[in-house]
Design a protein around this nucleic acid. Structure first.
Length: 257
DNA sequence: ATGGCATTTGATAAATGA
């Protein structure tokens, strides 16, 4: 069972790459962020033709999330029911006995801005809701673009990022509060190469110089973490023509006992 | 180097991203 998260930075532009990637990486579940599409423009037929069920919630220009699945999708929830939000950043569903939550956590712009306080309020409410969801669903996975680099290991140059969003103590504390609910950062369950990142700036040769940050994560509840046998970043599609600035991150679970 | 690049929009410069 393979679970992937990928911020595609416009599904309109990136649909061919998503389909191409799925051909060689036929994962069970793919959580997508930043579709940037209203629901009437979502390429449902193309995705279904590729052999995937799909659910989505989107808006014009910004945000938008979707879950693609080889297995039937049930009990779909759009957005956090505890957090009034016009921005479409969450979609959750039950798939193959797991509660799958796909999230595009706010960027936060910069500490001290309105967007930053929105991010912190958003995360606080996510935590409250997740606690309820975990009580209902022991098998839970939270996949997405967190816009948080949890540790200095997750930043190419921590000194250069000092004082920025993605790395601030407030954001890292919010991330650790999610972990404290009983979630595991599947990437850190395993030995990983140093300087493994999931996002690289389009500018200033970010990818070529590996000036990245690790902000896309697959968090697993304890029963799923116990089944997890790998978690890795696939840098290949970041090298393609006109790529997303994010790479897909995949966790693999062995079958339940 | 308060820029650099990509995407979107009742575009044609501005906002947003991270």
């Amino acid at each position: 069972m393979k679970l992937t998260t990928w911020n595609v930075n416009s599904l309109k532009v990136r649909l061919p790459q998503v389909l191409q990637w799925l051909q060689t990486n036929p994962v069970d579940i793919l959580c997508i962020q930043e579709t940037k599409l209203t629901d009437d423009k979502f390429p449902q037929a193309e995705i279904e033709a590729a052999g995937y069920h799909v659910v989505y919630t989107g808006q014009k220009t910004y945000n938008g999330v979707a879950i693609l699945s080889r297995h039937p999708i049930e009990d779909v929830q759009k957005n956090n029911p505890l957090f009034e939000d016009e921005q479409q950043r969450i979609i959750a569903a039950t798939i193959a006995g797991m509660r799958i939550i796909c999230a595009y956590i706010p960027n936060g712009q910069a500490p001290g801005t309105d967007k930053f306080s929105y991010k912190l309020r958003w995360l606080e409410s996510l935590e409250t809701w997740l606690q309820q969801e975990m009580a209902k669903h022991p098998n839970l996975a939270l996949l997405g673009d967190y816009n948080i680099a949890p540790d200095d290991r997750d930043v190419h140059d921590p000194a250069a990022w000092e004082g920025m969003n993605l790395v601030s103590p407030e954001e890292r504390t919010a991330f650790q509060r999610l972990i404290a609910l009983g979630l595991s950062d599947s990437f850190r369950q395993f030995e990983q190469a140093e300087k493994t990142f999931s996002w690289w700036d389009y500018r200033a040769l970010g990818f070529r110089l590996n000036k990245g940050v690790r902000i896309d994560h697959v968090l697993l509840s304890a029963p799923l973490a116990q089944r997890c046998i790998s978690c890795s970043v696939d840098r290949v599609p970041r090298k393609w023509e006109q790529p997303s600035d994010h790479a897909p991150v995949t966790a693999e679970l062995k079958p339940a006992e």
